[in-house]
Design a protein around this nucleic acid. Structure first.
Lengths: 188, 188, 188, 188
DNA sequence: GATGAATGAGTTTTCATTCAT
DNA sequence: TATGAATGAAAACTCATTCAT
């Protein structure tokens, strides 16, 4: 059962690193080929275009991220507990999968707008948690989508400031503070 | 007091509209010239490069935004009042100056990273408000930069979801909810 | 009898300096205007095109050079004496009118080929001297045009090497040596 | 021993022909592509810029020229003999490699000044011959660089006048005369 | 005469994509 | 599958020249 040894993996790795650092538009196929140690033509053997490569990487990573989050929520029951696990998972992912995270965010917010029109899966997860909390009377009444947007904003902006060095890099302390704050936002 | 009649304004207007809609990279000088009703060469009479045009527009709009916010804070004294005015101003700006707002955010987050390394002025204003509130004992003790990041995240993400139609567009109701939530985040 | 105060002189001065340093092609009208402290349009008030400006400057300077050389030959009678005066004049001109000289040579050899198709006046003068010397039996028999080319080559190449620092800059010593050598070339 | 089939040769050939005829500045990449029967983009697959193409061609041709001259000096021993071979070689090269020669001279004197700051190899060869002749007491005492410049001037200016039709094109007769004259210049 | 903003044709350069090997 | 030279359409940018003021 020999796996076909292709260069697809190299293409993806190189593209991810470059897309994340410079953006999709600013990354050339030449850049990708150079970094992957392959020829430009090879990219087209595995992807029909640069854009489809980007979309593929985006989808794959978003999926990976969603699964990662699910893992964090696996043994939680209470909405509050779930929210805390969600936030912790988000921070953890951003920390140990920096490249993946950066790419997802950048692609989501600017470059692949069309793609990400449909709601991001992680956002849906968050909304579900909030809805559950409301039903159980743990969280206060409010538009769950709006609440989700706000919580997501707190998380993402904090990570952004962490990553760009605007606040001191101490993931544990920051996570704790964000947790506390988010609970304040939604609790009764 | 005759102003020199120049096409600089047309260039800036066209570029802003296009940068905001498609991003800086995806906007070509040809696009700009076409929309402005001028020739491509004219762009270079006023700006040394497309990038410098983008930087100039970014700086100008950030400045404009900062002044807009200052206007909102003019007659406020109490930190809580200031925070509310700040948030209201932010939402108001995003509503009545949609193009400017979108461009500032996009440029800030992805395209002009180098430029915006130094802290964004509006962020500094927010931090000041939070610090003041802490000193007066109105806000709880926390890292002001982190608190600023979180509040900013709530605001910006909410606007993002408003603009992309992910939550129903009702500025007043949304602003009110965001206000309430932010107060919860920082109050004692 | 008031002279009309125009900017023509500034244009010519600036153009000469730039043409000589960077060549005609590589000098832009913008360069000229900037250096002359005038506007680009002004150039076209005095010259119909950049090329005509160059031609005009070339003709004027060649003329100036020819007159300069004539002055050196004024009180000479003997061919040998004339040849020496010619060479001395050539070196002197290249020394005290560096810009003019450089421009004439550069334009002559490469950029204004069409213009300088007709024989350069200074070359004609040299040929005349050589012919006279032959007639009087002082110089050996040889094609005067060829002899002229060779003498001219010695002079110009030496000056080129002086100007580019390839041989130590000592005009008097070098001139003396060139004089001696040229006499050797043509004498019986 | 299969050579990679590339259009690099075509690019170089076309560029050389055009650079020589119109100068580097006046030759466009479009011209080159058209003449080479390739697309403009192809130029940039082999050279990073038009200027680097020119530099590369210049270096290559100068090298070729130097080797050509060396071939002429191969079986010479006496300085006088060497000088004669050198001059003969110079003329021969200018005759059978017209394009190469013209390009080398033009590039050297005006367009690639920066490049050719370091002494031209053929000039060094000439200086060596002169130095040797002085050591052996065959040539008179004089600054060898100056002497070299003068001899070079005779050669190059004569060729220039031949090429521009200012003196009748008869290479053999002209070469003979130049030889005789140069010997007169340097002998005791 | 002088200005300098505007032009537009032209220049160099880039880059996603194709294709023969 | 992989290559990498070649492509060509389009990009950013240049510049001599014009023209309304």
């Amino acid at each position: 059962m020999s796996r076909p040894i292709t260069k697809k993996g190299e293409v993806i790795d190189a593209a991810l690193a470059l897309f994340m650092r410079k953006g999709i538009k600013a990354t050339t196929t030449r850049d990708i080929a150079l970094r992957a140690g392959i020829s430009e033509g090879t990219i087209y053997r595995h992807f029909s275009s640069k854009e489809s490569l980007a979309e593929s990487i985006f989808a794959e990573n978003l999926d990976y991220f969603a699964k990662f989050l699910k893992g964090y929520l696996l043994h939680t029951k209470e909405p509050l507990e779930m929210l805390q696990a969600y936030i912790a998972g988000f921070f953890e992912f951003s920390r140990i999968e920096q490249r993946r995270y950066s790419f997802i965010i950048a692609a989501h917010q600017t470059e692949l707008k069309k793609l990400s029109r449909g709601n991001m899966k992680p956002m849906q997860t968050l909304t579900k948690i909030l809805r559950l909390g409301q039903k159980q009377g743990v969280f206060r009444k409010m538009d769950t989508k709006l609440a989700g947007a706000m919580v997501m904003g707190v998380i993402m902006q904090t990570i952004f400031y962490l990553k760009t060095g605007r606040i001191p890099v101490n993931y544990d302390a920051v996570t704790a503070e964000v947790l506390k704050t988010c609970v304040r936002m939604v609790e009764k």
